[in-house]
Amino acid sequence: MTCLAFFSDNPSRWYDPLVAALSAHDLPLHLHPIGAGGELEAALVGLRPLGFSGALVENAAQQARIPALVGRREPEVEAAGRADALRVQWGSLTAGFLFPEAARRAMEQAGFAGARILWVGPAVPDLASVVRGMRTVHAYASTPTAGEGLLVQLPAPQRGRVVLGPQQAEALGAEVDVVVYAGGPLPMSILQPYHGFFAFAEPPLQDAYLAVEQVVSPDYFRQVYLSRLLAWVADVDLPPDAFALG
């Protein structure tokens, strides 16, 4: 039996889908929850001696603390300043951050690779890695400073324009293929029938899903995310639909 530590939120959005997937596929993996209130450094030190082969880290505050506590870090951890997974390799811990890979994979599976994007809402961790391979990224923001702060994280050839109001965003809609929603206001006039729609967060109006041609919902992204986390930590490659969400 392989044991994985699980640094969870309370309540957790990951635990039940993970346990159900492991049970349904009769996998010899045991997930051991560790609450966010414990001493993180001591828990990390104890992983290898206690026989854990790795860990999944759901709690955002703990994700942000781990890079300073783990000597071996994947490039995505360095870029994002956070880690969502750990594995024991050659007697020591390696920290990984699978969120960007999961986002790219979900975008590619939806046929969004190489798309022109209008990004709505705040940046996500390691934004440059998330949109790697996209043609252009524009930003719909409340202020020029917020929009430029998002775009400056990207390579210069990928940076598009900042639009500040629904009318400007609607006019830009003819130049983009995909609207990516990460939170905040979402004027429905932005969305066009020929758009793809990738949602990291639930949109204010469910009608957003009906206004576009193709949708990647937050639930589907979370399924892809859990799939990639488990593959990296435990070398178990389950399809996204193995993770049933309530």
Rank of each mutant, 00 (worst) to 15 (best):
A80L: 08
L47D: 06
R72V: 09
E76C: 05
Q63S: 11
R48M: 09
R73F: 08
A85N: 04
R72H: 08
A80S: 13
A55D: 01
V57Y: 00
L50A: 13
V88A: 03
A68M: 04
V88L: 04
V70P: 02
F52E: 13
E58P: 14
A60N: 10
R48L: 10
E74Q: 06
A68D: 14
A80E: 10
P75L: 10
S92D: 14
V88Y: 02
E58S: 13
S53A: 10
A68R: 11
W90I: 12
A85T: 03
L86N: 01
A60L: 13
L56W: 04
R48T: 06
A68N: 10
V70W: 05
E76S: 10
Q89N: 09
A68S: 09
F52Q: 11
A68K: 09
A79T: 08
L69K: 05
A85D: 01
G51W: 15
E58V: 12
Q63G: 11
D84K: 08
V77R: 04
R65Y: 08
R82A: 14
R65V: 08
A64I: 08
R72G: 00
A60M: 10
E78H: 09
V88D: 03
G91W: 03
A55L: 01
Q89V: 15
L50Q: 15
G46L: 11
A64C: 14
V45S: 12
V77W: 04
P75H: 07
R65I: 06
V45N: 05
E74G: 03
G51H: 14
A85I: 00
R73Y: 06
L50E: 13
A83Q: 04
S53T: 06
R72W: 02
R73L: 12
L47F: 07
E76D: 13
L56S: 04
V70Q: 00
V88W: 03
A64M: 13
D84S: 11
V57K: 05
V57N: 00
A79S: 08
P67K: 08
L56H: 05
E76N: 06
A60V: 13
I66A: 06
L86A: 05
R82K: 14
V70E: 00
R82Y: 10
A64T: 10
A55V: 01
P49N: 10
L86P: 01
S53I: 09
Q62W: 15
A55F: 02
G91V: 02
A64P: 10
A60R: 14
G51R: 15
D84E: 09
A80R: 09
L47K: 06
E74M: 14
A64F: 13
E58T: 12
P75E: 07
F52K: 11
N59A: 14
F52S: 12
P49H: 08
Q89D: 13
G71C: 00
R87K: 05
S92L: 11
A60H: 13
W90V: 14
A60F: 02
G81N: 04
R82F: 11
R73A: 13
P67M: 09
E58N: 14
E58I: 12
R72T: 10
R72E: 04
G91Y: 02
G91A: 04
V70Y: 01
R65D: 15
D84F: 07
P67A: 12
G54E: 05
W90M: 14
G54L: 02
V77I: 05
V77E: 04
R73Q: 15
A83C: 05
G91D: 01
L86I: 02
A68W: 07
S53C: 09
F52L: 12
W90S: 15
W90E: 15
